[in-house]
């Protein structure tokens, strides 16, 4: 049994993947607490999907795919905010428009690049290909996101719980929303390598949804969420190591869903 756990650790790619999944899992779970509590799951889906045109465009133009992904995610957030600022378009439909337009643009660009196979990893994640540059990006974005969440904890909590009171105190709830969107964009860039553009949103939503079932304060929600993400991330990696038919991204998301189900069934009613 112990051998089954230790044997993959002798492979450098597996260790890199393990570190990456633990870092980005924790980052996304903490950020996900606000995504879930503020009902921003749909926006976060739009941001993570828009990574596709960002990365493909960056590869075509020849600059860093991470930068491309971040720019595309920020463009999506800004575009949705602009569309929703006019009367007659709800935020929901503005996000829907941006999501589908950006994803379609990504598919069109992939045709330009003329190679679908190279982008399979982008859509579905490929843990095998995590290199030291990826680890650096994941580490740096993780530090930025977690310090941002810590430094602005009381303002983010206040603006999420009682937006009007935040405005009355002068604590700028609209600005806090923008900050959260930027952090979500950063966070999704950090985990696109692991689970792919299509499933990144799961890392925001599933662990944090588990946390909401178990935690009684926002930090507790984050801690339970991070625990769930670590469990699911590590479990998913082992799953796809021993069952190669299961891609790592899918494995991670499926393993994150298990603690959620357990919490859903067994958690005491809050």
């Amino acid at each position: 049994m112990l051998d089954l756990l230790l044997q993959p650790l002798s492979e450098p790619f597996f260790v890199r993947a393990l570190v990456a999944v633990m870092l980005s899992g924790t980052t996304c779970a903490c950020l996900g607490a606000y995504v879930v509590l503020r009902r921003m799951a749909f926006v976060s889906t739009a941001l993570t999907h828009s990574i596709l045109p960002g990365v493909v465009g960056a590869l075509l133009l020849g600059f860093s795919p991470y930068l491309g992904a971040l720019l595309a995610a920020l463009l999506t957030a800004a575009g949705a905010a602009w569309l929703a600022s006019r009367k007659g378009t709800s935020e929901d439909s503005a996000v829907g428009v941006m999501l589908s337009v950006m994803f379609a643009a990504g598919i069109a660009l992939m045709q330009q690049a003329n190679s679908w196979r190279d982008f399979a990893g982008l859509l579905f994640g490929s843990v095998v290909s995590v290199g030291s540059e990826d680890l650096l990006v994941i580490g740096v974005t993780g530090v930025i996101v977690l310090s941002g969440l810590r430094a602005l904890h009381k303002e983010l909590e206040l603006a999420s719980f009682d937006e009007e009171y935040a405005a009355l105190l002068g604590a700028r709830p609209a600005l806090m929303r923008v900050v959260l969107l930027v952090l979500v964009a950063l966070g999704s860039v950090a985990c696109v390598r692991l689970v792919g553009a299509l499933l990144t949103t799961a890392l925001f939503v599933i662990p944090a949804a588990t946390g909401v079932l178990l935690g009684r304060t926002v930090p507790q929600v984050m801690a339970w969420g991070a625990g769930c993400a670590l469990l699911g991330g590590v479990g998913g990696l082992y799953l796809s190591y021993y069952a190669p038919a299961v891609p790592s991204g899918a494995g991670i998301v499926l393993c994150c869903a298990l603690p959620y189900l357990a919490a859903r069934i067994f958690a005491p009613r809050r």
Binding site: L37, R38, L158, D162, E164, L169, V212, G215, T217
Partner: peptide, 23 residues
């Protein structure tokens, strides 16, 4: 009051938010 539903917050923390005016 438009408060977020089911938000994980204890009563004490809600009242503490008043002190943010002096932070």
């Amino acid at each position: 009051p438009q408060l977020a539903e089911n938000f994980p917050l204890k009563l004490r923390r809600l009242i503490q938010m008043g002190t943010y005016a002096h932070h």
